Computed example of a mutant assay.
Amino acid sequence: MKQKNILVVDDEAHIRELLRYNLENSGYVVEEAESGEDALQKIGEQTFDLVLLDVMLPGIDGLEVLRKIRQENDQRNLPVILLTAKGEEIDKVVGLELGADDYIAKPFGIYELQARIKTVFRRLEAYEVKEQPQEESIKINDLIINKSQYLVDKKGKSITLTHKEFELLYLLARHPGRVFNREFLLETIWGYEYIGESRTIDVHIRNIRKKLEGDYIATIRGVGYKFADEG
């Protein structure tokens, strides 16, 4: 899986260093910018997956940087999390109105920040998956999965699945070989965060396997599941 590239924008060197250290230890690639001008230049020259943007910057402030990203830059859909000083309620409101994906107030805990980053990435991934054209019928090996009729056929035999089981199978089958983690599957299929209940996915996968009588769905230990593209 491709590493996510994050741009950290803050005029305080010790904050940039702290964020770089923790984010790189979490598997992200990190670039730094110490001003709004520097950030806009780097965004224009490189491709980033997310920007951590301090509001209080010298010269062009964070809100203006955000405005330029959303209005003028080729990366106008680039996810942005604002870093705001505690109590700057007006900046949070304006930032969200300008299109910030989230904000977090300083001082913040690194675990909270990492959780916010993961949530933004999951939300973006869910949006991209939902926006892809849905095929009415998917045929993989001996399976036919008919979305319009919510029917699954295996070698001419109809397989009865519950609504959630079907949605889960259909999502995995649309992306054979792609690994989805449990949290993403929960948010996408159930429509909200099922915090602490990732066993729900395991139970549904087990039921699907039993009904299909084949190893269509592979477990990626410690991560999640993928459609194995073979029965």
Results as ranks from 00 to 15, higher is better:
198 S>F: 05
208 I>E: 05
207 N>F: 15
199 R>C: 07
177 G>A: 06
183 E>A: 07
205 I>F: 01
206 R>G: 15
198 S>W: 01
210 K>G: 06
207 N>M: 13
189 I>E: 02
194 Y>K: 15
206 R>A: 09
198 S>C: 10
206 R>D: 09
191 G>C: 11
194 Y>C: 09
208 I>M: 10
193 E>A: 01
185 L>H: 00
190 W>T: 09
195 I>T: 13
185 L>N: 00
199 R>H: 12
201 I>L: 09
197 E>T: 10
179 V>G: 00
187 E>I: 05
205 I>C: 05
189 I>R: 06
195 I>A: 11
192 Y>T: 10
192 Y>K: 12
180 F>D: 01
194 Y>M: 13
194 Y>H: 15
210 K>W: 07
188 T>Y: 10
188 T>N: 05
204 H>N: 08
208 I>F: 06
201 I>M: 13
203 V>N: 14
197 E>H: 09
193 E>D: 07
181 N>Q: 08
201 I>G: 04
209 R>T: 12
182 R>K: 12
194 Y>A: 15
183 E>S: 11
189 I>W: 03
181 N>E: 12
192 Y>M: 07
184 F>A: 00
197 E>M: 11
179 V>P: 00
196 G>F: 03
206 R>C: 08
197 E>K: 14
180 F>V: 04
193 E>L: 02
193 E>Q: 06
191 G>Y: 08
181 N>I: 05
202 D>K: 08
201 I>D: 08
205 I>T: 03
190 W>D: 08
190 W>C: 09
190 W>H: 11
204 H>Y: 14
185 L>V: 00
181 N>F: 08
195 I>K: 14
196 G>L: 06
205 I>R: 01
196 G>N: 10
204 H>F: 14
196 G>D: 12
199 R>A: 07
185 L>I: 00
205 I>Q: 02
185 L>K: 00
195 I>P: 04
196 G>R: 06
178 R>P: 07
209 R>H: 11
198 S>M: 05
207 N>R: 15
195 I>M: 09
180 F>A: 01
196 G>E: 09
183 E>Q: 07
188 T>C: 06
180 F>Y: 09
181 N>A: 04
195 I>R: 10
184 F>S: 02
197 E>Q: 13
198 S>P: 05
183 E>N: 03
184 F>Q: 02
177 G>H: 11
178 R>A: 01
193 E>C: 04
207 N>D: 09
197 E>Y: 13
210 K>F: 10
183 E>V: 03
190 W>Y: 14
201 I>R: 05
188 T>G: 02
204 H>C: 05
203 V>C: 12
186 L>M: 07
207 N>G: 08
209 R>L: 15
205 I>L: 02
182 R>V: 00
184 F>I: 01
207 N>P: 09
185 L>A: 01
186 L>Q: 05
206 R>K: 15
206 R>I: 07
195 I>N: 08
180 F>S: 02
184 F>Y: 10
194 Y>R: 14
210 K>E: 12
208 I>W: 04
210 K>L: 13
193 E>H: 02
205 I>K: 02
202 D>Q: 10
193 E>Y: 06
206 R>P: 03
204 H>W: 12
182 R>H: 01
208 I>S: 12
200 T>P: 04
204 H>P: 03
177 G>T: 05
